Amino acid sequence: MAITIQEGPVMETATLVVPTKATVHEKLHWPQGVHPEIEKLDEYVQETILSILSSSGNENRLRSTRACNFALFGASWWPFASYDALRICTCPFIWLFVWDDETDSLEFSTISDDWNRASTFRQRTVDYLRESLSGASQMSLSEITTDPLIAGFKPVAEAISRACNDRTIPSLFSNPSTFLAARLCTSGYTCIDHAVNIIRSSIERFEAAEKQLLERSSSTPKIREDLGKFIDGCKYACISNLNWR
């Protein structure tokens, strides 16, 4: 795909060739697929989005979010999962994307330009997640917040609680994620070059690690088989992200 950019005080023009999805697929040769129950998943996705956003009163936001095709996202991340597992695994991503829009979307957020409200929103989110994963009662959770944008995490917490034990759940909060943003791009050239280099180096590191892990487990067929399945699962997830966006 070619695009034309203009930059500099004299508005010089240049044409850049941006790698397409097809080009990346051809070079990767990584597996991809779509779960056969994607339509059923989409019904669940639409209901979940409606339950989170119906009280916002923002029809444009609701319509835009429902058009994001989260069903394709989940169905291509986990194309071979049981339907229940597929639904449970997709749910956190629906909630996360909707929640993230509330914190930084200039189009939809009601708090992005109010530091105090945004800080309160984030703190209530942390408190709610911690308590819901600890098995707190609905009454206790309601005392933290009833905001659907935060409380929409409750089905996720219930699913995680069923799948994890008391020892592993606390580890989810032992090393909270840090989100960093860096302004690395000074022009159209450097921005695209940087993105392409990130993809290229990530693929190289991934495939080098894959080779190393499979070689190390060559004497234990069962472990090698399980590792192969896990690695393929990671590849499905990467290609899923590429196809979805």
Rank of each mutant, 00 (worst) to 15 (best):
S218F: 12
D42R: 05
R245Q: 13
N243M: 08
C164M: 15
A208C: 04
F230K: 13
S55V: 07
R130S: 08
V98G: 01
V18Y: 11
S105D: 05
F70V: 04
R216W: 14
A81R: 08
M139R: 14
G228T: 06
A136H: 10
R224C: 04
T4Y: 10
I223T: 12
P221E: 09
T4P: 01
L227G: 00
S64H: 09
A163E: 14
D84E: 14
I38G: 07
E207W: 07
R87Y: 07
C234H: 11
A151C: 01
D100C: 08
A67T: 06
M139T: 12
S109H: 02
W115G: 02
A208H: 09
G135H: 04
N60S: 09
L53Y: 03
S217I: 01
Q138F: 07
D166G: 08
W77V: 06
K229T: 09
E131Q: 15
I38D: 04
I52M: 14
S56R: 10
T13I: 08
E37K: 10
D101C: 03
H29Q: 10
T4F: 05
D226S: 14
N116A: 15
W99P: 03
V34M: 10
A14C: 09
T65Y: 06
P148R: 12
E43G: 04
M11K: 15
C185Y: 15
I198W: 07
E102K: 02
R130D: 03
I3K: 11
N241Y: 13
G74E: 03
L50V: 12
R224P: 03
Y44R: 09
E12T: 10
I169N: 07
R130G: 02
K229G: 01
D42W: 04
S202E: 11
G152S: 02
I199Q: 06
R205C: 05
C89W: 13
Y44A: 09
I199D: 06
V196F: 12
A71P: 02
S218Q: 14
A81K: 08
R205G: 01
D127F: 06
A209T: 06
R63L: 13
E47Y: 13
K222C: 09
S76K: 04
S187Q: 11
E131P: 00
P170K: 11
K27G: 05
A181L: 10
C185W: 15
E47G: 08
T110F: 03
Q138V: 02
L106Q: 06
W95P: 00
E158M: 12
F121S: 03
